[in-house]
Nucleic acid binder design. Structure first.
Length: 650
DNA sequence: AAAATCAC
């Protein structure tokens, strides 16, 4: 009697962890129970497995049946020599008939993250007899892939010429046909070049109107192209339907302590459907918002406050003494797949909506927000366009400003730091694109040059544990280290190790933490008792219990248990991205050489402006720093919103 | 190279 030869598809399916409820260990024991092919899977045989009782056997049997779509995809992938674990995301995004759809169009695999064109080509060769590189499905997929890749750098559109070049590079002989196919599929939009500006001087002696420049033709993924169009239309709609909320004289009732520009911002909200309030840290944006909320409340106007992040929402709530939520919560977000309960059919019921940290709004979230605002709503976006752009694609706040389609109040007077101080002077220069030599005899700003990231890391530890407390008398507990990266000797991981060894050595008794450790949250847990914590909040461990930590965040103490524990990291050193929105008395900014490529003016500006009283810059990134500050952005985002807004405004 | 949000 010969043992049945194991089915390779079945083996790959089980080994990749695609059978729900089946652990790695039990998967390895299947052959011993005589289960080596799908036909072997019965409740009776599953019962022969160790640690499997009747109930579990039945559950495993039914979960195997329900995983049939994934199994079919595994069969396709294994046949093409591809990784089986891709099957789960394929079944998720392509649905129950994923296998059939991949057989019809193997290049649909490119819609999944982590799939290369070479992978999809391999699948095509295995699935389609006589597949070739000129297949129109392939061209169409490359168009979408090129646009999706650009999305990761924040672009919502790409010049058609660049897409043509990408198609050529992949051996597509007829790029125009590929673009037409992509547009016909509905996944991609084609945007004609704008009409040239009509210039009076030229018109006099020109026989013909100037032609649009074909080089300005762009393509977008439909979801982003449509989001920008909807956003522009809804800005125009709110601008056109708003009515004045209160007499400008009402501003006087809350004007005490506000400067002229801040008062103008209050008046602007009362009058305009959509308005912006911008300015750097410490210029009183939040103070102004608090005055607006106070004024509207006394008038009985319904105000909704929101922010793109949990931490910003929490801070907004504290500063205004009025409930604030994340924009996702405000809109009733329905999960990862997108979709919001609040929309055109069921709009928000606030008269005034205020969104803080609006530079973090990406184009889809902003479009959803505007869509949910009924006619007559006043929307105020508050933010600093000089700080880091949104994670998602788009350049919403900057485009709104550039378009000149909505009123903007820019606050420039600095109240928090000493206005003439070295931190403020440096920050203002960087905001304007200059990097002057630091002149700070009082050592408010100190630049520490370093060669290489290992030396940079040593300097950081020395500054925090020795120089800053000794020479400047600043308590290390109030000093925050900020770095662009996680990895490398001057990344958060290594710096935290080194800083813990110096500042609070210990074994890490609960989840790697000891009493006295500084921690940073990496996710929102706003419902923990009593107030929860928000992503990016920094706190100190004050107690360890049985699988629990007590953490003192600036907003108060929180008992952290269960899954929330895995959303804490050591927090002496954090990334610039995570530091956005927080400030500390002393800040050490590290610029290691390996971060040179990711340095940009917004990143540098965001890092520097975290400091209130002292700023040390450990500079090891050479000329990359000056170059980053000089250029507006190393890679500016290509978007269409500013032009759409300007067109709608005329 | 880094990154926020949401829900069951």
């Amino acid at each position: 009697m010969s043992a049945p030869s194991p089915d390779p598809v079945f083996a790959a399916f089980c080994a990749a962890g695609l059978w729900p409820g089946l652990g790695k260990r039990t998967a390895a024991e299947l052959p011993a129970a005589g289960i080596t092919s799908p036909d072997d899977v019965t409740a009776a045989r599953l019962l022969k497995l160790p640690r499997v009782g009747k109930q579990r056997a039945e559950r495993l049997f039914s979960s195997f049946l329900s995983a049939a779509p994934t199994y079919d995809v595994v069969a396709l992938l294994v046949g093409a020599g591809l990784e089986a674990r891709l099957a789960a995301s394929a079944a998720d995004s392509l649905g129950a008939d994923a296998a059939r759809r991949l057989r019809d169009d193997p290049w649909a695999l490119l819609g999944l993250t982590g799939v290369t064109l070479a992978d999809a080509d391999r699948l095509a060769i295995a699935v389609l007899p006589g597949a070739d590189r000129q297949d129109s499905r392939r061209g169409r997929a490359i168009v979408a892939l090129t646009l999706r890749t650009a999305t990761r750098d924040g672009h919502t559109v790409l010049p058609a010429d660049l897409v043509v070049a990408a198609l050529r590079a992949e051996g597509v002989a007829d790029p125009v046909a590929a673009i037409v196919a992509a547009v016909e599929s509905g996944e991609v939009l084609d945007h004609e070049p704008p009409e040239p500006e009509f210039a009076e001087d030229d018109a006099a002696d020109a026989d013909e109107l100037p032609e649009p420049d074909p080089a300005l033709r762009t393509l977008s993924l439909a979801r982003y192209g449509m989001a920008e169009e909807a956003l522009a239309e809804n800005v125009a709609r709110l601008a056109a339907t708003s009515e004045r909320i209160a007499d400008p004289a009402a501003v006087r009732s809350v004007a005490k302590g506000l400067d002229e520009a801040q008062k103008a911002a209050v008046a602007q909200v009362l009058g305009a459907g959509v308005s912006l309030l911008t300015g750097g840290p410490g210029t009183g944006k939040s103070r102004t918002v608090a005055a607006i909320v106070q004024l509207l409340r006394t008038k009985g106007t319904e105000v909704a406050l929101a922010a793109p992040t949990g931490r910003a929402a929490k801070r907004l709530e504290e500063l205004t003494d009025h409930p604030a939520v994340t924009v996702h919560r405000l809109l009733g977000a329905q999960g990862t797949s997108g979709g919001f309960a609040r929309n055109e059919e069921w709009p928000l019921d606030a008269d005034v909506v205020v969104v803080d940290e609006a530079s973090m709004l990406d184009v889809e979230l902003a479009a959803a927000l505007l869509e949910a605002c009924p006619d007559g709503t006043h929307l105020l976006l508050v933010g600093d366009p000089a700080q880091l752009p949104s994670i998602g694609p788009g350049h919403v706040l900057g485009d709104l400003i550039d378009s000149k389609a909505v009123p903007v109040t820019e606050l420039t007077t600095l109240y928090r730091q000493a206005e003439g101080g070295a931190i403020a002077r440096l920050a203002n220069a960087v905001r304007a694109g200059e990097l002057p030599p630091v002149d700070s005899p009082d050592r408010e700003v100190v630049v520490v040059p370093a060669t290489g990231s290992a030396e940079a890391a040593r300097r950081v530890v020395q500054l925090v544990t020795d120089s800053i407390p000794r020479a400047l008398r600043i308590d290390p507990a109030t000093v925050q280290v900020v770095t662009p990266v996680h990895r490398g000797p001057a990344g958060t991981i290594e710096l935290n190790k080194a800083l813990k060894a110096q500042l609070n050595p210990g074994e890490g008794t609960v989840w790697g933490f000891d009493v006295g450790d500084r921690v940073v949250a990496t996710a929102n847990h706003l419902d923990l008792e009593p107030i929860g914590f928000a992503n990016g909040e920094v706190g100190v461990v004050t107690g360890t219990g049985d699988g629990a930590l007590t953490v003192d965040f600036s907003s108060g103490p929180v008992t952290v248990t269960g899954t929330a524990l895995s959303d804490l990291r050591h927090g002496w050193a954090i990334t610039v991205h995570r530091a956005q929105g927080s400030e500390w008395p002393g800040v050490v900014v590290v610029l290691p050489p390996e971060a040179g490529g990711m340095l940009s003016r917004p990143l540098v500006y965001t890092a520097l402006t975290r400091a209130q009283r002292h700023l040390s810059i450990v500079h090891a990134s050479g000329a990359a720093l000056a170059r980053a500050v000089r250029e507006v952005d190393v890679r500016p985002r290509r978007t269409r919103l500013a032009r759409l807004l300007a067109e709608n405004a005329d």
